[in-house]
Design a binder for these strands. Structure first.
Length: 781
DNA sequence: ACAATGCTATTTTTT
DNA sequence: ATAGCATTGT
């Protein structure tokens, strides 16, 4: 047991309590930089090492694939380090490279391989590969295990088809994007088309529900699922098939969820079902050899647009925990010591976030000394702002030889803001990597090749077939395609059945049949090859047989050249996939491609400045951070301005940004910014005024002073009188009327007295959390 | 069947 | 500003 004591030694008491948690429920409220990844990885190691839990019984959910990868590798290292002592009697560092690799690969085979670590989407798409054939939806629709995963643009295309072609509606009035979003929201609330339909009583709602039905038909016809289905289908399957649920419930005895504040309803349902085997959480109490361990920070909840709901985190104590107050509870631990940022940075972050009304009370405690003041730069325009970033990077590099480009990050609200910064970096020859924006797998050429792969894996995937039936050009035009599709529809068979039948093609396609037949032949050839050959071979084979790269070469433009490069990168990606994956099937590759994000490719240790959105920066840290574009309407986004809860989310986003910084933080805003091509005047963000002025240095003469009144200040006339009459007495179930949201029903009450906030469900707006002191609430009897 | 031209929405954030 | 889209022309 010496190894154990050793390994728990460098943890503080809260971390230690988390790591040593064995059975039952535990909520770890983990502030930014408080060592939550360490808590998670150590706990998994401790379950296996101390409690002899079989790795195959552990399910760990992360927010990104990158986090999953990192978690695996950290756990691997922990075990490898232990075994270094056991097998070689030496500390890890004293081993040579060969011994290290040998140990790591041994650990991988015996432990890591069996752990289920991944994102919700990744993990449950894997579950579906096993069990989707046991699922049937309310209309009897079924899927098989070769299902395709449709990305956002595939889905939007489907919706557009339905709106315009099938229902003959105006796509100005029913924007595919908006309709798709509505369907997605319905799915995230766990509503099937029928259930959704029942809730609609206006025209628009009924149309959307109609589109939703057709949309499900289309997905089914393609044997395809969208992102939301990857979670919703397992929930429905678990509910309709007790044996399937029981199997996974027995398998996943220890469940860990990271970033719990950003889970949505469906994700919660999955966790709830797996933990309790379908029993109500409140009556469930069989925690023998079983645990649920979630880590999160309500202050970092920034995905409500994706239906994330941090009240799920705030309800954890009632759902799974002992519901005791904070000072007596056994099922919650707070990690409040911050090991990342300097005190000045933390003070700014703490100060800012206290402007929010709805949060779990928590403050980050500094452990690393005061540090430099925060610097605020007021730029003339976005170009000046970018040049400021450049000049500071140069200055800091000059003055601090230990720094390199990799220690810097520039964070912004929207992807479009990267442009001027990129331009400035190019001019100044500063190396940079940009994370996010256009994803690798969103590039046209990559989507083309992947469409071939999808069509090969899943003959019913008509969307993919249509994408590439004439790519590269093989003389198959729109009329031919229409004829083929009509034929398929008349016969009630998937398009592929027509393409695969020579006589049909010749009758329907006439002169164009040569191209169609050639296409079908290529698909057939590689479909049979795919049974034995690895994914790389299929990719290179497709590229070769279709003349895809050849066509690009004849074009010879710069753009074409870049596309060729990207195709080569795809080949490399498949090789890498094969090396890293323990199940290198075509289906598994396609799943990983569909669910991968650009973020996953961020290599640390590369000497380049990182550029990314604030959302993408969650979970990362950098010695020096530039937070740019702090302007009203940009950050906070103009879409949030009339919704107090949305502004709170923007503020949390700002909090996330600030807490990425370890040593130094630079904030900037421009007086004038180019937007859509024209210059627009800009005023600085309210968030700047919410930071403590004494921590800020600035290039301005005028002293910065707080201009926004403190919302909870008793000087605010609205908060006096009116509210004192009704600060207490809010109860779940009460019907209330809200100044701007209308009538709703209270679904939850958080906290007591002055710190109270309440969640209200509004029939059309969903759930909102409001501060009763400022919301102008009235109870209706 | 395909190229060229003009029009338009796009900008919140992403698994 | 610009890329992707739709409509038009060859």
């Amino acid at each position: 047991m010496t190894a154990n004591t050793n390994f728990l030694a460098h943890l503080n008491s809260s971390q230690r309590r988390s790591v040593e948690h064995y059975c039952g429920a535990l909520l770890v409220v983990a502030g930014a930089g408080s060592g939550k990844t360490r808590a998670l990885t150590y706990r998994i190691a401790n379950l296996i090492r101390t409690h002899h839990v079989d790795p195959a019984h552990i399910l760990a959910v992360t927010f990104t694939n990158k986090a999953a990868k990192e978690m695996r590798s950290r756990i691997e290292l922990l075990f490898a380090q232990q075994q270094a002592e056991l097998k070689f009697g030496k500390p890890w560092g004293a081993l040579d490279d060969y011994q290290q690799t040998q140990l790591r690969s041994h650990v991988y085979k015996t432990i890591i391989k069996d752990l289920w670590i991944g994102t919700f989407h990744g993990l449950f798409s894997k579950v579906l590969r096993f069990d989707i054939e046991k699922y049937q939806d309310e209309k009897g629709r079924t899927w098989n295990k070769n299902f395709s995963i449709f990305d956002d643009s595939d889905c939007q295309g489907l919706v557009k088809q339905i709106v315009v072609k099938q229902l003959d509606l105006d796509d100005k009035k029913f924007e595919p994007r908006a309709v798709r979003y509505a369907i997605s929201t319905a799915k995230n609330q766990g509503l099937s088309p029928d259930e959704y339909s029942k809730q609609q009583n206006d025209y628009r709602g009924r149309v959307i529900s109609d589109v939703y039905k057709h949309y499900q038909d289309a997905l089914c016809a393609n044997n395809a699922l969208d992102f939301d289905d990857l979670l919703l289908v397992p929930v429905q399957l678990f509910r309709q098939n007790a044996q399937v649920l029981d199997y996974w419930h027995r398998k996943f005895r220890h469940i860990l969820v990271d970033e719990y504040q950003d889970t949505n309803r469906t994700q919660y349902d999955l966790i709830q079902l797996l933990v309790t085997n379908g029993v109500d959480s409140k009556t469930f109490n069989n925690w023998e050899h079983r645990s649920i361990f979630v880590v999160g920070d309500a202050d970092q909840s920034i995905y409500s647009f994706r239906a994330a709901d941090f009240t799920i985190l705030m309800n954890f104590q009632d759902d799974f925990g002992d519901s005791m107050p904070d000072d007596r509870t056994e099922t919650m631990v707070k990690l409040e010591e911050n090991y990342r940022s300097r005190e000045n940075i933390l003070a700014a972050a703490n100060h800012l976030i206290q402007h929010n009304t709805q949060r779990i009370d928590k403050i980050l405690k500094a452990t690393r000394g005061e540090g430099e003041p925060i610097f605020l730069y007021k730029a003339d325009n976005e170009i000046d702002e970018a040049e400021f970033v450049v000049s500071q990077i140069r200055k800091l590099l000059r003055e601090n030889p230990e720094l390199n480009y990799g220690n810097f990050a520039a964070l912004y609200r929207t992807n479009a803001q990267s442009r001027p910064i990129e331009d400035a970096f190019v001019r100044s020859q500063i190396p940079y990597t940009i994370v996010g924006g256009l994803k690798f797998y969103d590039r046209r050429e990559i989507k083309d090749i992947v469409a071939y792969l999808r069509a090969i894996a899943n003959p019913n995937d008509t969307v993919s077939l249509l994408r590439v039936i004439n790519t590269p050009r093989r003389g198959v035009g729109q009329t031919t395609i229409d004829n083929l599709q009509n034929a398929a529809q008349q016969l009630g068979v998937p398009l592929w059945e027509i393409l695969n039948d020579e006589t049909s093609v010749k009758t329907v396609a006439g002169r164009s049949s040569k191209g169609v037949l050639n296409f079908a032949e290529i698909i057939n050839k590689w479909r049979s090859e795919s049974e034995t050959r690895p994914v790389v071979d299929i990719v290179t084979g497709i590229v070769e047989d279709t003349g895809y790269v050849h066509e690009l070469q004849t074009q010879g433009t710069d753009e074409a050249l870049e596309r060729i490069q990207n195709v080569q990168e795809l080949v490399n990606a498949t090789i890498q996939f094969q090396e890293e994956s323990d199940e290198p099937s075509l289906e598994a590759y396609l799943a990983s491609a569909a669910l991968s994000s650009d973020l996953d490719n961020l290599q640390e240790g590369k000497e380049a400045v990182s550029l990314m959105t604030l959302h993408a920066s969650k979970g990362l840290e950098f010695p020096i951070v530039f937070l740019v574009g702090l302007e009203a309407g940009l950050f906070p986004s103009f879409r949030s301005l009339n919704d107090p809860m949305a502004v709170e989310e923007e503020r949390r986003l700002c909090y996330v940004g600030i807490t990425r910084a370890q040593e130094m933080l630079y904030l900037s805003h421009a007086r004038e910014r180019r937007l859509y091509g024209s210059r627009e005047p800009a005023i600085r963000s309210q968030f700047i005024g919410e930071l403590p002025p004494e921590l800020l240095n600035s290039n301005l003469r005028t002293k910065i002073k707080a201009q926004t009144p403190d919302r909870t200040s008793p000087k605010d006339p609205k908060t006096v009188g009116k509210t004192n009459a009704q600060t207490t007495g809010w109860r779940v179930g009460d019907r209330v009327i809200h100044r701007s949201f209308g009538v709703g029903q209270i679904s939850h009450v958080f906290g007591t007295g002055n710190k109270q906030s309440i969640a209200i469900k509004f029939p059309n707006l969903g759930q909102k959390i409001v501060d009763p002191k400022i919301a102008g609430l009235q109870k209706i009897d």
